[in-house]
Design a protein around this nucleic acid. Structure first.
Lengths: 243, 243
DNA sequence: TTTCTTAAAGTAAAAAGTACTATAAGTTTT
DNA sequence: AAAACTTATAGTACTTTTTACTTTAAGAAA
């Protein structure tokens, strides 16, 4: 119904026809975080196509004409890691006029958290190589990807202080010291062990299992898992839909 | 240099030529918050053009082909309020396939905070009317603007807890009780007056002036202003550029 | 059985947050 | 001009949370 004469829409102060505005490219780029050996890592690909061929970059792709934004991010993640049900979140959109050498391409930044032990990322047609990099030892990146990674990290650090997402970087069963390591890597801080333990347990969101770690040269620690149901239930109750 | 054959770029798993991906429209939409009479308000326009003509909506416009995203938001804000140096921030991008009746238009959501007393918003060619609405008494909105407003409010509420942006809703000189009113409206909570005062002053970010309010039927309160320089300086020192 | 390493519990001081009371300083009313 | 009233501002006592540190326990390895 509205399709008849689109040129009459959006005529703010300029007189360009509507069709002149439909020349944007859209992409999604994903900053994939992992955790291993007490350090925070980012998954990068080595580009197999121009522009920035051979450069390292964060994985991304153009949004399909008939694809939702989150679906696009899911597709990239799925494709690269082979995993489903990955935690991810949109955090910022980057659209400086000349950010892309080919044309006006605006990219939507997502970050995601994955358990690095579960899988091996695989290179594909569009990536010569895929590798985990320590967050403090990143190579030079193509496009404006350094800015994107930096901003992703900023968002992640804020988020992790208010919502229990640290678990997403660990296997389902983890020890409290492992969890502490995640938070220390993420926030670049040190915590006191007994106090960290006390605080985490007092939140009542992780449940002790009847299992302990194995193959360690010392007293094995108890394993826990995150009680997502309880968290979701609690969150639901607190939400007040004021609008 | 890279412009010669764009069709070889971004060929992930599909075989569409690059030009097929350049048919997105981009817009920015601004959720403008104000504060008056102890209540939080949103500035809405009544649309003067299709689609959703006559409906209330948040102000927005298509991004110009040669315009940065933030510039686009600035332009809309400037145009509508006549004010410069308005606080604003990008918060989320909305791009569901069918969100826009005319075509695939992706919109970048911004929210901003303005001092409502400083100015009167003016309607223009693209808006029949402009009006402030109480956040709890919004009319039905066109497009997906209800979702956008809701999400903006969510972001604002988080932001206001970690950064001193409440001042942006008040005139340069304000009383502590006025500031308390802003926070109560923003967070939908009540604070104890002496404690709020103590907490705010202990942050050492607002400075007392040698002025008091006038034309009040009781003991006039002291006026304060926000010490932005001190805040910026302090923030600068804390930032550790770890990337 | 001894030694080693880390888990896990406990304790005490400091800081921050909460609830409330009291006083001071203006304006308005009588 | 004094009294009544309203709100600003200061102060106090109490509770809870955070921080720093000590102690004990449990298992693995030698």
């Amino acid at each position: 119904m509205h399709k008849k004469n689109p040129d009459t829409y959006f005529l703010s102060e300029n007189n360009l026809p509507f069709s002149d505005f439909l020349h944007f490219g859209m992409s999604t780029d994903c900053v994939i975080f992992g955790y291993k050996n007490k350090s925070l890592r980012v998954l990068l690909i080595q580009r197999g196509a121009e522009p920035f061929i051979d450069n390292w970059a964060i994985p991304g792709d153009l949004v399909y004409p008939n694809e939702d934004l989150d679906s696009s991010a899911t597709r990239i993640l799925q494709h690269l890691t082979g995993l489903e049900n990955i935690y991810f979140e949109q955090f910022h959109t980057f659209g400086t006029v000349n950010r892309h050498p080919v044309g006006r391409v605006i990219t939507i930044g997502y970050y995601s958290l994955v358990r690095t032990d579960n899988h091996k990322p695989v290179a594909s047609t569009w990536a010569k190589d895929v590798k985990w990099f320590d967050i403090n030892e990143l190579p030079p990146l193509g496009f404006d990807h350094e800015e994107i990674v930096h901003k992703a990290l900023e968002h992640l650090r804020k988020k992790v202080r208010t919502e229990p997402i640290g678990f997403e970087l660990l296997p389902a069963k983890f020890t409290l010291l492992e969890l502490q390591g995640v938070y220390e890597a993420l926030l670049n801080m040190r915590f006191d062990k007994p106090n960290f333990r006390k605080k985490i347990l007092s939140m009542d969101l992780i449940t002790p299992l009847n299992e302990v770690e194995s193959n360690v040269a010392h007293r094995p620690a108890k394993l826990f898992n995150f009680d997502k149901e309880r968290y979701d239930a609690r969150k639901k109750n607190e939400i007040s839909f004021e609008l």
